[in-house]
């Protein structure tokens, strides 16, 4: 499977897929997309990278263990719920702020934070599974 062409193209495909996955994640609230789909696309990208260039390369490239990404995601998702505590509203109530960043209004919200959490969990966990199976040489 590790043909020269595949190995040459794979990093570009992988980075494109990761970029696309973030795009899909962020548009999810209003258009097709969301954390689950985004996470799956990201995981597929890394899996392809791993198939082409070896698991060690991927692990080096993402620096942290994929399960750590998943763990951070779970914490983010939980945090999105807990943020309603200081606001004095029931757990997981959606909170919205509209700060102006670089002259344009951006809508930031706890559901969005939650969706990012979902993205991280799905991407981290599935990447971990895929890499695990790819590098597992059995015997």
């Amino acid at each position: 499977m590790r043909t020269l062409i595949f190995r040459t193209v794979a990093p570009y495909i992988a980075s494109l897929m990761l970029l696309f996955s973030i795009f899909v994640l962020l548009r999810g609230h209003n258009d097709p997309g969301g954390g689950f789909i985004g996470g799956l696309i990201g995981a597929s990208g890394l899996a392809i990278y791993g198939l082409a260039c070896g698991v060690a390369t991927v692990r080096r490239a993402i620096r942290v263990h994929p399960m750590s990404i998943a763990g951070i995601g779970l914490i983010l998702a939980a945090l999105a719920g807990i943020l309603s505590l200081p606001a004095g509203v029931p757990f997981m109530t959606g909170l919205w702020v509209y700060p102006t960043i670089l002259g344009s209004e951006a809508a930031l919200s706890t559901p969005m934070l939650f969706d990012i959490g979902v993205y991280c969990v799905v991407m981290g966990a599935i990447t971990s599974i895929a890499l695990c199976l790819e590098e597992y040489d059995g015997d």
């Binding site: 609230h29 209003n30 997309g33 969301g34 954390g35 559901p111 939650f114 969706d115 979902v118």
Partner: peptide, 21 residues
């Protein structure tokens, strides 16, 4: 009330967020 146009995604991350968690 949930400010989202993708109803499916709004259900997942907002209305039924606890399930998703």
């Amino acid at each position: 009330i949930a400010h989202g146009r993708n109803v499916v995604n709004v259900i997942i991350v907002d209305f039924r967020g606890l399930d998703t968690l």
